[in-house]
Amino acid sequence: MNWKVLIAGSVVTLPLVALLAAGFGRDPKLRSNALEGREAPTFALNTLDGQPFSLEASKGHPVVVNFWSTWCQPCKIEHPILMGAAENYGPLGVKFVAVLYQDEAAKARAFLNKAGSYWPTLEDPGGRTAISYGVAGVPETFFIDKNGVIVRKVAGPVSQEIMVSTLEQML
């Protein structure tokens, strides 16, 4: 065996293989969590019932902001986890709020009447709040600590484990 050729070939090919592995190992659809560790953008919106809601008023409490819509199946799968979390952590001071994303209020009301809800759902005219949070699809959930800083963003449905561990960390 020609060891010189083998070594030279390895020196050339191994880094290229590593380069390709690094490239293919990354999900090209993955968005950066640009807002994690930074102050949550404030918003003041109306609930589906027309009541005003301001994030500022929740300062001093951990807040879970969930962007969702009725046309999003993963949002419906996630709903029971949010319900369970709100039921258990609401009494401990965690505030839950949902923001409707690119959807109609009537459809949201109909869904929530059936599935139930322990939190206010807000209308977001023009999707401004979703844009200010960098929402690129639903569901997306933001965990905001007592100081108003986003400690975690979850794109896609939140699992029970992530929900509990993040809330425990924020309390």
Partner: peptide
């Protein structure tokens, strides 16, 4: 929605750099 937001910000006098930075801060 994003296009409308861009239009609003431009009309308010935000520069192209400010608006680009605004979106990069949120979406990366």
């Amino acid at each position: 929605a994003m296009g409308d937001r861009i239009e609003e910000l431009v009309e308010e006098g935000y520069t192209e750099e400010q608006i680009t930075e605004y979106f990069v801060d949120r979406y990366g």
